[in-house]
């Protein structure tokens, strides 16, 4: 778990010509390129079936890329998956933990397999409080947790791993506005700790609150990628819809003025 050699490189997550064609012929990702630096929060927007989960699965080596590479701290994850995965934490769209274990037991297990063996109960309590889970649920079994509580546990696990990059696949889907807001605040604090955060979502409003960089993925292609500063003051939802429509009509220019 020694991250020293890669500390200097700030490029944490990199997709280089990343392409995935499934066995049934579906081209889920078509030569996509992007990079996430430390302290950057990258939001990937895209409709259902755009290829967001596929991209994350490629980073985690759950899938082999058809072409190109997904790199974590410069390590191609399909070449050296064990090494690459040391530097990444993952929060899925529906965090599933061991239902018969308590929150603390789950945290302990995942911290240990993430390579962190010297945490105490207090550390787990602190991190659970940080993600907004009150002390009275810490020793409750996970199966009694609501989806929002599970998502919070998921982020707690990611925090404990203390990896330099975090991948989140639609983490706020299904959360109520308050929980969503809290979640986003947490991501903000992680970013300020210097983590590189990659988040896929449909949720433009949530994304707008914190993103440093936006990308729009449509049918396996990145059709827009802009720093948030470029989009300041613009109505992102309209833009998104315009982009999607524009891309479909192959008349991106009609979306107007973003590239200016």
């Amino acid at each position: 778990m020694n991250e020293q050699p890669t500390r200097e490189t700030t490029l944490r997550l990199e997709a280089v010509n990343l392409t995935k064609r499934y066995e049934d012929g579906v081209l889920a990702l078509d030569h996509i390129n992007f990079a996430v630096q430390s302290g950057e929060l990258f939001v990937m927007l895209g409709g259902n079936g755009a290829g967001k989960t596929t991209a994350i699965n490629l980073f985690l080596n759950f899938l082999e890329p058809t072409e190109g590479e997904a790199r974590i701290n410069g390590i191609a994850s399909h070449r050296e998956p064990l090494k690459a995965k040391q530097h990444v934490a993952f929060v899925s769209e529906n965090v599933m933990l061991y239902g018969n274990f308590t929150a603390i037991q789950n945290l302990d297990f995942f911290a240990r397999i993430g390579g962190k063996t010297d945490f105490r109960r207090n550390d787990y309590r602190d991190v659970l409080l940080r993600v907004g889970l009150p002390e009275d649920v810490h020793d409750k079994r996970l199966k009694s947790f609501s989806k929002g509580m599970r998502q919070k546990c998921g982020i707690a696990i990611a925090i404990l791993k203390d990896a330099s990059a975090i991948l989140l696949d639609e983490p706020t889907a299904g959360l109520d506005p308050k929980a969503g807001h809290e979640f986003v605040r947490l991501l903000d604090s992680l970013r300020s700790e210097g983590k590189a955060v990659f988040m896929s979502t449909h949720d433009i409003f949530r994304a707008r609150e914190i993103a440093d960089t936006f990308a729009i993925l449509d049918r396996g292609r990145i059709i827009m990628q802009e720093p948030a500063s470029n989009l300041a003051g613009k109505d992102l939802e309209t833009l998104y819809i315009q982009y999607m429509a524009g891309h479909n009509n192959s008349s991106v220019a009609a979306a107007g003025g973003i590239h200016a």
Binding site: L60, F62, V95, M96, Y98, I113, G114, G115, L167
Partner: peptide
């Protein structure tokens, strides 16, 4: 099925 396998293998586990 319960989804924990993914979370486990998001870590460096042989």
């Amino acid at each position: 099925e319960s989804g924990t396998l993914k979370l486990v293998f998001a870590n460096a586990i042989p």
